[in-house]
Amino acid sequence: MSEFVDFLKHKYAYVAMGEFKPGTFPEAQKLYEQAVSTYTKGFKGAYLLQKPGTDEGIAVIMWDEIGTMQDNMSEAYKAILDEMAHLFVKPPVTSFYEVNSEIGTINSN
């Protein structure tokens, strides 16, 4: 029964879309990975997407609940975000989304 209830739970995605100053995407990627590495409870995964040939990107961070992101905002996390802020052309656009469908490959061993 608990597996069925877990199946019904939806994840949430925090999405940030932004553009970095020319040539700074690699530095931003390093800082993003450091920030994500500070997450613990409720964290379900993260992706950093880069539009080919540009410094535009989308960060997608998966959470079990919206509130757990707030719980993970440690001093170390905030310091990394402060370090990253000057790399943006302008502040990123951010939103939360409920994950309504999740489709993946089936690993048949």
Rank of each mutant, 00 (worst) to 15 (best):
G67E: 15
E98P: 01
Y12L: 00
L49G: 09
I66C: 04
M73P: 11
L81F: 06
G18D: 06
E27C: 12
P26S: 00
D82E: 11
E102F: 10
N100D: 14
I66M: 07
L31V: 00
V99L: 00
F96H: 03
A13E: 02
M17W: 15
F25W: 06
E75Y: 13
Y12S: 04
G53A: 03
V5W: 10
L48A: 05
T54C: 05
S74D: 06
K51C: 11
T94R: 06
G23N: 05
E56N: 11
T68Y: 12
N107F: 12
A59D: 08
T94Q: 01
K78F: 13
N107Y: 15
Y47V: 06
A85T: 09
E98H: 01
D71K: 08
V5E: 14
D6P: 10
A46Y: 02
S108M: 15
S74H: 04
Y32H: 11
E56K: 09
K21S: 07
K9L: 06
A79C: 09
T68Q: 12
L49H: 07
A46N: 05
Q34H: 08
L49S: 07
T54W: 02
P22H: 04
A16Q: 01
L87Q: 04
S101L: 15
L8D: 04
P91V: 01
T38S: 05
K11R: 07
A85H: 09
F25A: 03
W63K: 02
E102I: 11
I61Y: 13
G45E: 02
S101Y: 15
Q70H: 14
Q34Y: 07
N109D: 11
S108N: 13
L87N: 02
Y14D: 14
E83N: 04
M84W: 06
Q34V: 04
F88K: 01
H86K: 05
Y39V: 09
Y47K: 02
Y77G: 08
D64N: 03
I103G: 07
W63R: 01
F88I: 03
P22S: 05
A28I: 10
A46T: 06
A28V: 10
D6K: 11
A28S: 11
F25R: 03
M69H: 10
H86F: 08
K21L: 13
S101P: 12
W63V: 06
N107L: 13
K78S: 12
E75S: 15
L49W: 07
M73R: 12
G18Y: 00
N72I: 07
E33L: 13
K41L: 05
D55R: 02
E33D: 13
Q50A: 03
S74G: 00
V99G: 01
E102A: 10
T38P: 00
A13R: 00
M69I: 09
E65M: 11
V15C: 03
E56Y: 09
L8K: 08
Y14W: 13
Q34E: 11
S108A: 14
L87T: 01
S2R: 13
E65Q: 12
G18V: 00
I103T: 12
E33K: 11
E102M: 13
Y97M: 10
E56H: 08
G45S: 01
P26L: 03
P91A: 07
K51L: 13
Y14N: 12
H86I: 08
W63N: 00
E83S: 02
A13M: 07
L81S: 09
H10Q: 08
S108I: 13
G45P: 00
G57Y: 09
W63F: 03
E19K: 08
N72K: 04
K78T: 10
E65H: 10
